[in-house]
């Protein structure tokens, strides 16, 4: 493992296995959530209500995984009383899966709106601006999970940095939708739906950013939530 975090094996083999298992579960959950997001986006942009239904009905899997991982983490805390990096790993996982579950919820929303928009025969060409935002968010989520898997602080920081673009994109979409609504009040219903989708995507980006912050905490032992990127970098001496 090429990270700052040295993970030589524990004296207790069973402890090693438990930590590895819970970490793999979290990564699996990440993969599942990533798939949900990407499917939801695809359903939305390609107006596929079937796919949308699938996404909307698959959220339970994510929820079940969250419960499972939570329980495993509780058991590790109770039995092993982890300290230092082990403790941070368990805490990061607990927090990460909460964010992943939320992302799953947002993906479910995307699926639901994809069905609604498709049922109303709204052409995807009418909200093509979502594509850009969606791709970016997908990329962020992917990078965040990647950084988590590799415990890569640099990648995590880069991902956090890229969230500024996300904000800009979201603002641009909002402005555009407001214009649309002002021009043609009949479009308000659909515009609001599109806006809700943009809002979901923006939330997914936020959660991805959180995951990156947990990676920093896991590897460096510093809590970098609610600090500006510059302060963050200064503190981590990068």
């Amino acid at each position: 493992m090429d990270t700052d975090l040295n993970l030589t094996p524990h004296i207790s083999n069973r402890f090693n296995e438990e930590l590895e298992e819970v970490r793999n579960l979290a990564l699996n959950m990440g993969g599942l959530v990533e798939k949900q997001v990407s499917d939801g986006l695809k359903a939305l942009l390609k107006a596929k209500s079937k796919l949308g239904e699938k996404v909307a009905s698959s959220d339970y899997k994510v929820n079940a995984m969250e419960v499972d991982i939570d329980e495993q983490c509780t058991l590790i805390l109770a039995r092993r009383q982890p300290a230092a990096s082990d403790l941070r790993l368990v805490i990061s996982i607990i927090k990460t899966i909460t964010d992943l579950e939320r992302i799953g919820d947002e993906a479910e929303q995307l699926g639901i709106y994809a069905i609604k928009l498709a049922d109303d025969n709204i052409k995807p060409s009418q909200f093509v601006e979502l594509r850009h935002l969606g791709e970016h968010v997908k990329g962020m989520l992917h990078d965040a999970l990647d950084a988590f898997a590799r415990m890569d602080v640099d990648a995590a920081l880069e991902t956090i940095e890229s969230s500024t673009i996300l904000k800009e994109e979201y603002d641009a979409i909002s402005r555009q939708l407001i214009l649309q609504m002002m021009e043609d009040p009949r479009q308000i219903k659909n515009a609001l739906r599109v806006h809700w989708c943009a809002r979901s995507l923006e939330r997914i980006g936020d959660h991805s950013e959180n995951i990156c912050e947990y990676v920093v905490y896991l590897v460096k032992g510093r809590d970098v939530r609610h600090v500006s990127l510059d302060e963050m970098k200064a503190e981590l001496e990068i």
């Binding site: 094996p9 524990h10 004296i11 207790s12 402890f15 300290a83 230092a84 082990d86 941070r88």
Partner: peptide
């Protein structure tokens, strides 16, 4: 700090129960 984020590798190894 020692129990959440020790600075030295040996400390880390000791308190996390590693070789």
């Amino acid at each position: 700090q020692i129990f959440t984020n020790p600075q030295h590798q040996l400390t880390e190894n000791y308190i996390t129960g590693r070789f």
